[in-house]
Design a binder for these strands. Sequence first.
DNA 1: GACCAGGCACATC
DNA 2: GATGTGCATGGT
Length: 230
Amino acid sequence: MTAARTARALMQMYEAMRAHFGSQGWWPAAAGADTAEGKLEICVGAILTQNTNWNNVERAIENLRRADCLSVEALDAIRPAKLARLIRPAGYFNVKARRLKNFISAVVRGGGEIRAFLARPVCELRRALLDVNGIGPETADSMILYAAGRATFVVDAYTRRILARHRLVEGGASYDSIKRLFESALPADAELYNDYHAQLVAVGKTFCRPEARCRGCPLAGFRHEAGLRA
DNA sequence: GACCAGGCACATC
DNA sequence: GATGTGCATGGT
């Protein structure tokens, strides 16, 4: 498929998903991302949601809020064991407590101001985030898109599955190749990337399960893997 | 009880 | 570089 046709297909798929699900209102609408606390909450959520259901993440964030721990200073000061107890509902709590600490250490090393930390040039910010043990490409891009409000496409398990099923990428395509596919096909627009990713998650949750369940899917009419049409 | 969820690092080959 | 494994809770 040519680049132009891929770009057209990706935009049409977005329109179809949006027509079906409506605007998803993911971060930052939910968290008030213009404030330092909102941005930090998004970054914390990005780490807590790794391989984890969002409902569980919300419980963990609520625990942090109640314990007055949603600030760089508090997260820097808290002991790992106590942090792990607070985020327990999000699963992998020992690992994620360490990862949160690593992230906060990077922010503190950068001056301790989350807004300043996120305001650096995107390439520099992405490198800094990927240097944090426990932050991989998806978590880094989630922070850059949702907390920093910059146009970076987030690729997740749903994105891979949906694109592979619709034959836009090979099954084993790398994170960066899928990211480049979207970023070269779509205008560099943070709001679009934000909602596009949320729409893919909605399709993934509702229809594009590991076991095929395409009936009623807004993407069912698009170029599709043999045997999987609605 | 099995499977899944908005990953990542590390060991091993 | 590809593949396998550990990490853990809560919903369906």
